[in-house]
Computed example of a mutant assay.
Amino acid sequence: MSSAGQPSIGMVAGEPSGDLLAATVVQALRECAPAYALAGIGGPKMQAHGFDAWYPMQKLAVNGYADVLMHLPELLGIRRAVRERWLAERPAAFVGVDAPDFNFGLERALREGGIPTVHFIGPSLWAWRGERINTIRAAVSHMLVVFPFEEKIYQDAGVPVTYVGHPLARVIARVPDRAGARARLGIAQQDRVLALMPGSRAGEVRHLAPRFLAAARLLQARDPALRFWAPMANAERQREFEAHAQALGGLDNLHVVVGGSHDILAACDAVLVASGTATLEAALFKRPMVVSYVLPRLSWWIMRRQAYLPWVGLPNVLCRETVVPELLQDAATPEALAAAAWQALTDDAARQRLETRFGALHDDLVRDTPALASQAILEVAGHG
């Protein structure tokens, strides 16, 4: 119950991708169970559907072990505060949206306190740190997964699970409206456009923006008419990215905007993109891409020792082969990124093959995710 006696469901989403994925579920819960208050930690897309955000979502958006250690006292303080509030207010259920390092500890405490828990989007047990299944079994009453092959992992481990499809497969059109997106952005139909997407977290922008921008300068020397669009998660990331561009001496035909990533993905010819949900978005928009990621040395060493798969980009993971190039850590030089991006921009035959492959992937991921997820959440909450 909320403090006013209204039945409630608690939720925590810790970064823009989680906000995007959770927003459709928040909307569905509002429509099918309007009596429930929805509150916790979330972003602007969740808030647009009536979600009450107690803390700014950006507080949880850290990446890599080094960044987590730097912000650990604040993160632990926030988690302690919301845990105590929910144990006092007794929501009908709690839903952790991604952010496993933050949410699993919170979910375990709430579940031990008698509050059922749902985790939306299982962590990548198939990629690294598979031992987390033991943590999940103790913390999660019901797991919602977004990729079909994940269901068996949780069934075999004895964790109740529902495959709900991926929300983005419903949000993004099967055939993107490239001409319409270009018209909205003021991009001429004949212009060649590369999207630069270095991530939504400060650490990602810090490590990737200088490399992406240096690669863009090399590409512009090759094609002076090439245009660059960089959608940023918020104004702070925009300022950071623009500061990196200025430090490199500027870049012609660069447009840095807050939001608008879907129009930019629909409009562009190819993408330089940080590993993460944005790679799946680019695939659903049927765009050629170059996937990259750079971490502090310690974080990279730890993650590589725990990895199981040869890929990090979701298109490659889901297709079970290297369909798009990945340039990670020391391999992510401006020269290598520029060469791979030029190939993505100019190889028409490869683009057509990717469009076909990504179209089939899109079909595999389409389900009525908001309805399936909200139904499972309400069942866990005991909603009759």
Rank of each mutant, 00 (worst) to 15 (best):
S2P: 00
M57W: 00
H262E: 12
V62E: 10
L295C: 10
V26P: 03
C268E: 12
L110T: 11
A179Y: 05
E150T: 06
D19A: 02
D263S: 05
E131Q: 14
A181G: 08
A225Q: 14
G42L: 11
D252S: 13
Y293Q: 05
A4T: 15
R129N: 15
G130F: 07
V164G: 03
G122S: 15
A92Q: 13
A81Y: 03
D330L: 06
A61S: 14
A349N: 08
A127D: 01
A340K: 00
D98Y: 12
A169K: 10
Q190E: 15
N253H: 15
L196E: 12
A195P: 07
I153M: 08
T24A: 09
A282N: 08
T135P: 07
W301Q: 13
E379S: 12
F94M: 01
A93E: 04
T24G: 13
L21N: 07
V291P: 01
N253C: 03
C319Y: 04
L208R: 02
L21W: 04
L194P: 01
E15P: 04
R320F: 02
P148A: 12
L110I: 06
P176S: 09
L21D: 00
I9C: 07
A99S: 12
T333K: 00
Q352G: 00
L194A: 10
F212M: 02
D19M: 05
F94V: 01
V323M: 06
L75C: 09
A336S: 12
D330G: 03
A336K: 08
R192D: 00
K59R: 14
R184L: 12
E281Q: 15
A215D: 01
G50K: 08
M57H: 02
G359K: 11
T322D: 06
S2E: 13
W311M: 01
S3F: 10
L20D: 02
A245N: 04
M303G: 15
N134H: 14
P310R: 13
R192K: 15
D348I: 06
T117M: 07
Y154M: 10
L378M: 07
R184K: 14
A235H: 14
L38W: 00
S17E: 05
A179E: 14
F241L: 12
P310S: 13
D364R: 15
A247W: 05
A267E: 11
H244N: 07
G158R: 11
P7S: 10
M1Y: 03
L29W: 04
Q47W: 09
A183S: 03
W342H: 13
L280K: 11
F102S: 06
A66C: 06
E242F: 01
V271S: 01
A181V: 09
A181R: 09
R111V: 08
H383L: 03
G18V: 01
A195F: 11
V258F: 05
A92Y: 05
A274I: 04
A139T: 11
A360P: 02
V82K: 04
L185D: 05
L125Y: 11
D348G: 08
A266K: 02
A202Q: 14
T333S: 13
T277E: 08
A202C: 09
V62H: 12
P34R: 06
N134C: 08
R206T: 11
L75Q: 10
R137D: 11
